[in-house]
């Protein structure tokens, strides 16, 4: 099962980065959202896959049933999902504000920090 998910993860990453390499804010945002899923799936798969049985202990038992899923990557991913969502929201608002303030959604046109006609470092003492 893992090889199939490995291919899927590869596709997720490729799609995400293809979108991120675009110059348009919206496509970059979509790419970031997909990248979050790609990373989560990567961690999930690296922790090995087991079908259906969740890591939950039955009322009359002291350990999860045999063949239960690996709990550790799930714990890591659960918080990661929430955090990546909050960062996605932050990025969304940031992009929105950048568009409002700079009047463009093309990252090539956002040259406030790195002006096109850069005079270079100061010379002399």
């Amino acid at each position: 099962m893992e090889p199939a998910l490995a291919v899927l993860v590869g596709l997720f990453f490729a799609t995400a980065f293809y979108l991120i390499l675009s110059k348009k804010l919206i496509r970059i945002l979509l790419g970031v959202a997909i990248m979050g899923n790609a990373v989560n799936l990567l961690i999930f798969t690296a922790g090995r896959l087991t079908r259906e049985v969740p890591p939950i202990i039955a009322l009359d038992a002291y350990t999860p049933p045999a063949g239960a899923a690996n709990a550790l990557p799930q714990a890591l991913i659960l918080t990661a999902i929430v955090i990546s969502f909050s960062f996605f929201a932050f990025l969304l608002v940031l992009a929105f504000r950048a568009y409002q303030d700079l009047g463009t959604d093309d990252t090539d046109a956002m040259r406030v920090a790195e002006p096109v006609a850069d005079a270079g470092p100061p010379q002399g003492y």
Binding site: E2, P3, L5, A6, V7, V9, G10, L11, F12, F13, A14, T15, A16, F17, Y18, I20, L21, A38, L42, T45, A46, R48
Partner: peptide, 19 residues
């Protein structure tokens, strides 16, 4: 596409290797 594809390929191979 080439850049993104090779990163994707890289992660795929990495994950295969890990598993």
């Amino acid at each position: 596409g080439v850049v993104a594809g090779s990163v994707g390929l890289g992660f795929m191979l990495l994950l295969l290797k890990v598993t």
